[in-house]
């Protein structure tokens, strides 16, 4: 694959600038050039890359080199620290409402993985937290979206609330909450239709559902393979709905997943879970430092620090 990790990129630069006592501007310039390309190849948004690079330059230039490190290693250390910091801490708790049921809304672009993740979250809530969730089929647009959720419900032996495709998603959500109260479900997970962040009518539908059901969590579901557009999507969904967290799906692929960094940078909201496969048990907590390493090929980079 034409995809070079940061380690490959930095190898020669590091060789050149070893053995000096101070990190010079030239060192930093050469290194950050490679870091920039690596980040762009990993799909981190170019504006986010720019900010990061400026910060890295600011911090690295003129730094005294620590005794155990070469100037090259020193810069890499700064890069890693900045990335990890931007990624935020680990945060995979699911909120609990003061009064049950706790409502979770799943939102995002078409095909991101909302319905699948709805099944996964329900499975997690029941298995790990001993809860009794109700799944709600509020996607009346996509062909067979209800069948899809009902099939997942059957696989998990969990109830699915639906009113067919003629009903209005806002009404479906309202009725679902009533039903959940009657039947003592402690969680309600609402699967909504995929929509473009620029589709005003459908974005407004989400706002209405939100106003009605007062969700404790609104999860934006994002495909890990998303490119530069991730910032636009995340920014729009967040500004219109004030999302509470992000689920990054399809991370079982071989994408670097730079979208994670872009989303964090523009929303500041935590990425709580990652999808690691199509099955309902393939949902994991998000590990920020692992993600930072993945984006840069840092696993290699850290070993580079040891080698250099």
């Amino acid at each position: 694959m034409a995809f070079e990790g940061l380690a490959d990129r930095l190898q020669s630069t590091i060789q050149k600038i070893r053995g000096r006592g101070k990190v010079t501007e030239q060192d930093v310039k050469e290194m950050t050039r490679e870091v920039r390309l690596a980040l762009l190849e990993a799909d981190v948004n170019f504006k986010v890359v720019k900010q990061l690079i400026n910060k890295i330059k600011e911090r690295a230039i003129g730094q005294e080199v620590m005794e155990s490190l070469t100037p090259g290693q020193q810069v890499i250390k700064v890069v890693q620290e900045e990335l990890t910091q931007l990624m935020g801490g680990e945060q995979s708790k699911i909120a609990v409402a003061d009064r049950p049921p706790t409502v979770i809304m799943m939102v995002g672009l078409q095909g991101a993985g909302k319905t699948t993740t709805t099944g996964k979250l329900a499975n997690l809530l029941r298995k790990k937290h001993n809860r009794n969730p109700l799944l709600v089929a509020a996607d009346v647009y996509r062909p067979a979206a209800i069948d899809q959720l009902e099939t997942l419900g059957k696989q998990l032996s969990l109830p699915v609330f639906s009113m067919g495709t003629e009903a209005n998603p806002v009404d479906i959500a309202n009725e679902a909450i009533k039903k959940a109260k009657e039947e003592h479900h402690d969680y309600v997970i609402i699967d909504t239709a995929g929509r473009l962040h620029v589709d005003e009518k459908l974005m407004d539908e989400l706002t209405q559902i939100k106003t009605n059901v007062k969700p404790a969590e609104i999860f934006l579901v994002v495909d890990a393979m998303t490119g530069q557009d991730a910032v636009n999507v995340a920014e729009s969904f967040d500004s219109q709905l004030d999302i509470s967290g992000v689920v990054l799906t399809k991370l079982d692929g071989d994408t670097r997943g730079g979208a994670a960094l872009s989303i964090r940078a523009v929303t500041g909201k935590p990425i709580k879970f990652v999808g690691m496969g199509e099955r309902t048990d393939q949902l994991e907590a998000f590990h920020p430092e692992r993600m930072a390493s993945r984006i840069l090929g840092m696993g290699d980079v850290l070993s580079l620090i040891e080698k250099a």
Partner: peptide
């Protein structure tokens, strides 16, 4: 290919 996809689309195509 999903137009939203970034660099990974290259690996997909290959």
């Amino acid at each position: 290919l999903d137009a939203t996809t970034g660099q990974n689309a290259l690996a997909q195509a290959k």
